[in-house]
Design a protein around this nucleic acid. Structure first.
Length: 491
RNA sequence: CGGGGCGUAGCGUAGCCCGGUUAUCGCGCCACAUUUGGGAUGUGGAGGUCGCAAGUUCGAAUCUUGCCGCCCCGACCA
């Protein structure tokens, strides 16, 4: 074995790093905290992006692009927003380099200091709302439904491939509406788009909920989120959708004339998911042999591996496989025929398992004689002999089955890891033992949430949208509570 | 920024404590042959500013000092 993966049991974070590197999703880069997304990883992102983009357009949004740089003064216009992001902003102060007079190579030219420094966007609310001011005058200009695919920079102290990098790729939707209700509806609609995408395509079960004040986006009135559970029992925020109220409209003075010719501030939303989803995908499904990718997002859905001795046999196998490859293509299935003779079949088997390809087909002379092929599925590692007649259709059905199986497995795990806690001791021992979401009563105060975080490192992941009202006592303070919230240690 | 670990060929490493011929081993790479149904085997070969700089010494991968970088744990966060 040339590419050993650390087992999950031995070291979960090392397992994760090994997978990302060895499956060829990404590489470390020369810049600390920044990663290189390699072709295989980017293909995965493209599949996610294309699917989300389609859903955004179906719900009436248009793509646009705003600048990478934001004038420093913009950021400070919304008080909570600046406070939330100030600590992690990269700042451009100069616009020119020159050769050092003492021969120390190239240096920043002190003469070329910017009049107003530029922030590299950590998110684009400010530059966008500055723009919306000039785009919106009348109720006829609303709603304004814009999305952008972009990179952003947040100067995090500690980074992890895909999960938290200094620069990352994402999409950010920014919408403007005439009424509060319309904006709230938009916020919830996009949350549902995310949730459906996560469950249907990523095979990732999520809890839809609202964030507590502590966890809310800087500048939002309400932050909605989808929360997923990873195999190590830690939660991961997979997407957020914010109801921004009139905060940014007021900060950037964006008003519109309504039908009665009254000037009103507009209502706003913003929503985003990032390349972090790739991290979620990996940690939710994969195993000690490598990635397990859901068929709907896998860059390669089916790999075909020939087994032969000599050129004569290879020619026979090629002939058979070429027909099958065309059948797959006709069905819109992404298929790779790996006839590279410098690798032996066993090596390829392990390699494509590492890469999480959902279905592997092996075809040799023995199979051709019997008109069959060996079909192996990545999710449960089982193999079966399948007739070559109509094999593309057989595998198409199998891919659908795999998609469902991966989701069911993740959902079962998730459901088994939502546990109710009634006492503080129970709460703590659940966190330290079983992990996962803990459903518990909370008195609703930031102080208590803060205290719990300090004592246990667990945070309130969300208040589920479909929560039952249930009177109880706060897990920490014993004060009265009207409903349970979900706690977890999180990424 | 604190605490811990590390830097030797593309990757992973031995050697360092106790300085001394040509820097160890595995994987990978190149050539050829035999191979090909779960990470092939043999033979031959290429590949190194031992993180950087200064110092000690006849002599430094090894000792001293300074610097740089990376990883893990924490504080911060999607």
């Amino acid at each position: 074995m040339s590419k050993e993966i650390t087992s999950r049991e031995k070291d979960y974070s090392q397992w994760y790093n090994d997978l990302v590197i060895k499956a060829g999703l990404a590489d470390y880069s020369a810049v600390r905290g920044c990663m290189i997304i390699k072709p295989y990883g980017f293909a995965l992102w493209e599949n996610m992006r294309d699917q989300l983009d389609k859903r955004f357009k179906e719900t009436g949004h248009q793509n646009a692009y705003f600048p990478l740089f934001i004038p420093k003064s913009f950021l400070s216009k919304e008080a909570a927003h600046v406070e939330g992001f100030a600590k992690e902003c990269a700042v451009v102060t100069h616009y020119r380099l020159k050769n050092d007079e003492n021969g120390n190579g190239i240096v920043v030219d002190p003469e070329a200091k910017l009049e107003e420094e530029l922030i590299i966007r950590p998110t684009s609310e400010t530059i966008i709302w500055n723009t919306y001011k000039s785009w919106i005058q009348s109720y006829r200009d609303l709603p304004l439904l814009i999305n952008q695919w972009a990179n952003v920079v947040r100067w995090e102290m500690r980074t992890r491939l895909f999960l938290r990098t200094t620069e990352f790729l994402w999409q950010e939707g920014h919408t403007a509406h005439a009424t509060s209700q319309e904006a709230i509806d938009e916020t919830v609609q996009m949350l549902n788009v995310y949730a459906e995408f996560a469950e249907e395509y990523m095979a990732l079960p999520v809890v839809k909920g609202v964030k507590s004040i502590n966890e809310r986006f800087a500048g939002a009135v309400d932050t909605y989120c989808i929360e997923a559970l990873m195999q190590d029992g830690k939660a991961l925020q997979a997407g957020t959708s914010h109801f921004l109220g009139q905060n940014f409209a007021k900060a950037f003075d964006v008003k519109f004339s309504d039908k009665e010719n009254k000037l009103e501030y507009v209502w706003a939303t913003s929503w985003g998911v990032s390349t972090r989803l790739i991290g979620a995908l990996i940690m939710a499904h994969s195993d000690d042999d490598g990635l397990v990718l859901p068929p709907k997002l896998a860059p390669i859905q089916v790999v075909i591996i020939p087994v032969f001795k000599g050129a004569d046999q290879k020619a026979l196998v090629d002939e058979k496989v070429n027909v099958i490859v065309n059948d797959f293509k006709a069905l819109g299935i992404s298929v790779k025929y790996d006839d590279d003779d410098s690798r032996r079949p066993g090596w390829k088997f392990a390699e494509y398992e590492m890469k999480g390809v959902p279905v592997r087909i092996a075809i040799g002379m023995r199979d051709i004689e019997n008109n069959i092929a060996e079909v192996a599925r990545r999710d449960d590692k089982t193999k079966q002999s399948v007739s070559l007649d109509g094999i593309a259709n057989t595998v198409k059905v199998l891919l659908e089955e795999i998609q469902i199986n991966i989701y069911s497995k993740a959902k079962k795990f998730r459901n088994e890891h939502i546990t109710q806690a009634e006492t503080w001791d129970e709460f703590v021992s659940l966190l330290d033992g079983k992990g996962g979401f803990i459903s518990a009563h909370w008195d609703g105060t930031s102080e208590t949430e803060e205290k719990i975080k300090e004592l246990t490192k667990a945070t309130i992941r969300c208040i589920p949208l479909d929560n039952n009202k249930e009177d109880g006592k706060c897990i920490l303070t014993g004060k009265p509570s009207r409903e349970r919230v979900l706690f977890a240690r999180a990424y």
